[in-house]
Design a binder for these strands. Structure first.
Lengths: 155, 155
DNA sequence: CGTAATTAATCAGTATACCCCGTTTCCGTT
DNA sequence: AACGGAAACGGGGTATACTGATTAATTACG
């Protein structure tokens, strides 16, 4: 009898479900999803990005970034325009309200993290973060959305 | 400047993307997704389950279980029928081909796990599994799909 | 014994995540 | 300057994941 609980993939999927549920609960006042928040954070760190840059910074599939930006645009949190320099690109940036919400949400986001990790001692918390980072960096090129590593982010 | 890489939720989401990508690659010959494989495993361990039992065993939302079963049914891997004892319930079971594929896939599934965890030493692998299990169990009741714990699985 | 509460499933709707393919625009080479 | 390849994006399609409302069947209670 093979238990799903012995499979890393199962634990990762469950952890993902749980994290999304906690995030949505803590951030219910903003009605922003984790992925939307990741895109807004990417735009906070690097305004006026094209969609592929956002995809790399936030670790999100390129086509999905376009969908997320469209929804944020529709809610007035993001503004999109064609690049003058390269008319293939669409440049996105946070609006004033998007900026305000992105900054406001930091507290709620930290609360969500704290709730998720609360069952672990500080040492275990630290260990888990380190192991997950190691695994994500080493396997970064799998998936259609390889993320830009922090080291290369200063561009 | 807040880096996404310091947020557990980001690492979990990326880990999930990576795992799905590796699984689909290793199991491409079967054209079965991780969630479909989880459902098939649940039916392997507990044949003739209703949809809510499957949802609990596989840690999947109950509406999603219905969708997954419909696709597996259409491919002839699962057979569904109304329960005689309780006509609200729909009972599902693997067909002969579903059974064959579920058993066949174990090797590919193990390969996917090995590929995913390869960057980690055996000690780190073990530690990560333990910490993820601890976190999932402690937070199990978040998300719409709280899973049945292994301890209570002997039903 | 009949009605109220509960339960299993379904349906409609939204959001993520990916694939394939086509269009527009740009760039390097000739 | 023309052309071929590459890059950025868009559209169509599939699968997961969840919410809220609804329907049908069962159970529990007075």
């Amino acid at each position: 009898m093979t238990s799903l609980w012995e499979r890393p993939g199962y634990l990762i999927r469950r952890l993902h479900q749980i994290h999304v549920a906690i995030f949505l609960e803590e951030c219910a006042a903003y009605n922003i999803t984790p992925v939307q928040y990741a895109v807004m954070t990417a735009l906070l760190n690097r305004p006026d990005s094209d969609q592929i840059t956002i995809a790399q910074d936030a670790g999100i599939d390129r086509t999905n970034v376009a969908d997320v930006l469209a929804r944020l645009d529709q809610r007035g949190l993001v503004q999109r325009r064609r690049s003058e320099a390269d008319r293939r690109m669409r440049i996105a940036a946070l609006t004033d309200e998007g900026l305000r919400i992105a900054r406001d949400m930091e507290h709620a986001s930290l609360r969500a993290q704290a709730t998720l990790m609360k069952p672990l001692s500080p040492e275990k918390h630290e260990t888990l973060m380190r192991l997950m980072t190691e695994l994500v960096e080493a396997n970064n090129d799998y998936s259609r959305a390889p993320a830009r590593l922090p080291a290369e982010a200063a561009g």
